[in-house]
Design a binder for these strands. Sequence first.
DNA 1: TTAACGTCAAAAT
DNA 2: TTGACGTTAA
Length: 330
Amino acid sequence: MGIASLLPTLKSISRHAHVGETYAGQVVCVDAYVWLHRGAYACSRELCEGLPTRKHVEYFLNRARTLKRANVRAIYVFDGGRLPGKANEEAQRRRNRSEALAKAKAHARQGNASAANDFYVRAVDITPEMAREVIEALAREGFESLTAPYEADAQMAYLVKNGFVAGVITEDSDLIAHGCRSVFTKMAGDGSGIEIRFEELGRNRGLSFVGFTPDMFLEMCVLSGCDYLPSLNGVGVKKAHSLIRRFKTYNKVLRHMKFEGIAVPKDYESRFVDALLTFKYSWVYCPQRREIVNLNDPVGVLDQSLIDDLPRLIAHSRVGAIDERADPKA
DNA sequence: TTAACGTCAAAAT
DNA sequence: TTGACGTTAA
């Protein structure tokens, strides 16, 4: 998901590259979520039926070995809580999966393996146990992994911002919204993919980001619609861009819209602030201090009363239980 | 011109 | 299920 159509917007500064050429001798972090899913496709039937398989683990290890061969040291970052979304969305997904599983089994009974497989792939669930299997397999080969207290996105953004890693390998455009120096997407099995550098933004053709600060860019992203807040009707990346270019801050954008009599839901502003806070102050693990910290330091930036509220504000924006692996005390 | 909408293909073997 | 792309509607 992430920010809708942000990647196509940045096509002119997207560079075809190879992880080796891009990161050789450096450390990067990898969004484990995608590889976990792709690996599961290779053996969705076995996973659904509870049959023994290690294909998904092997898939992940192969990717990890590709990075190693390219002389890239990687930290594999896993999501903490059970993945995003409201409880009812999660329940709906569970229902969809079990329906798909029923259909898969029906096709399998009739001997139609390929039809069955179409439904098995829709029925696979990525469980914490699968993540643990992969983490253990990685460790056995000397690969490092890290489970984020909440979301991997924020965790990876922290690692880049503080110089722990040089870049992020992911499919998620949110990392660009976070202002990551280097984001590597669409990595194939051979290590080829596309790199986007934040400092190239000023050279983008089409939408111009000349004069944009990282905050302006982030606010544009939230305005255009993100995982935490859908956009207003008729607002996409283009509209959000022209509004921020003209008014510089979301505050002034919203004031302008009110002035123009554009219909804005009553709670939009407060939800916008929550979304921004979630982007900027999510909880992450600091490998140096060995404790949970905010992605950005709120001290001196936010009012103390707001800082005191962060645990509540950020915890409710993504409801997800933190499993025991993510507990700093464990 | 831009966003919304619908269709299509890829994911891994 | 998601992202990419072409078409349509405002």
